[in-house]
């Protein structure tokens, strides 16, 4: 069971309190009724599913109830950082210090 840092509760909480909610940073088009089939396909069906760092949404379902975003490495299953919904996609190269919550200080992502 992972520990996930909730950016709203400001602490790590057990995974059982959370629910995964798919890829992050896919904004619903404001003019959704007018977009083409291709645009709708890209918005609704196509997902990156990378091997490595992925940006995804989680909800602290049984905690504060907030949706938030996380950068997680799908290879090591490590959370690199979590941040509030609505914040821009972070540049992980620059993110450092307190913002990055790695599972271990010693560890390096595999």
């Amino acid at each position: 069971m992972l520990l996930i840092h909730c950016p709203y509760c400001e602490e790590e909480r057990p995974e059982l309190e959370f629910r995964h909610a798919g890829e992050a940073h896919i904004a619903r088009p404001e003019n959704i009724a007018e977009i083409s089939d291709e645009e709708f396909q890209r918005y609704f069906f196509i997902r990156a599913n990378p091997k490595g760092v992925t940006f995804e949404r989680w909800r602290h379902m049984h905690g504060c109830g907030r949706f938030f975003n996380a950068a997680r490495d799908t290879v090591s299953d490590r959370f690199l950082m979590t941040y509030m919904a609505g914040e821009p996609k972070p540049d992980l190269g620059k993110a450092g210090g307190g913002a990055v919550r790695s599972a271990s200080r010693k560890g390096t992502p595999a």
Binding site: R19, A21, A27, R28, R57, R59, M61, G65, R66, F67, A85, G86
Partner: peptide, 13 residues
């Protein structure tokens, strides 16, 4: 409720 919260919090905040 989860579906509504999702839209409210992330699409129509």
């Amino acid at each position: 409720l989860h579906h509504m919260e999702d839209y409210l919090q992330t699409e129509f905040p």
